[in-house]
């Protein structure tokens, strides 16, 4: 079936079978490979994207059902400038192998949008994103820092 997806500000038209997930459409049809396939059944969070500004598991979302704009980790930054949360993840070494990182960062941005600042709130909110390297302590530090930096960035606008 023919569908249109707005991905990171660009509208893409494609012909997919009804059973194709948003994750596979992004990765295999559109070359948007930031979102990762860690389990393909909504258990790891590596495929997390934003749909209409809310976090969603792209492996559990059929591409044909998506009507709102999709943002992936690629859509957060420009070639010149990292998103504050991306910079915080790099600075706090909140990653090792990096495979879960795109999903972690999309959830982290959502945590910041909700104003979560306490470590326990952040731990709870981020618990849908597995990290087998177990960078959890530095992820918490990065989310706190990235959120406050995001706040500061907003304040200067």
């Amino acid at each position: 079936m023919n569908i249109a997806l707005e991905i990171n500000g660009t509208t893409e038209h494609l012909d997919v079978a009804p059973g194709v997930t948003l994750l596979d459409a992004l990765r295999e049809r559109l070359g948007v490979t930031g979102p990762k396939k860690g389990c393909d059944r909504g258990q790891c969070g590596a495929c997390t994207v934003h749909i209409g500004g809310r976090t969603a598991l792209s492996c559990l979302t059929l591409a044909a059902t998506v009507t709102q704009p999709v943002t992936t980790v690629e859509g957060l930054s420009t070639p010149e400038r990292l998103h504050p949360m991306q910079r915080a993840f790099a600075e706090h070494d909140a990653l090792q192998c990096g495979f879960c990182t795109p999903g972690q960062i999309m959830s982290a941005v959502a945590a910041a949008d909700r104003g979560l600042a306490e470590p326990d709130e952040i731990r709870e909110f981020m618990s849908g994103n597995l990290c087998r390297c177990s960078a959890y302590p530095t992820i918490v530090a990065a989310v706190r820092d990235g959120a406050s930096e995001e706040g500061r960035a907003d304040a200067t606008v």
Binding site: L76, D93, G98
Partner: peptide, 13 residues
């Protein structure tokens, strides 16, 4: 910092 961190946080790795 990890040399590959900029790639990993932007989805370009």
């Amino acid at each position: 910092a990890r040399p590959d961190a900029p790639l990993k946080v932007t989805g370009r790795a």
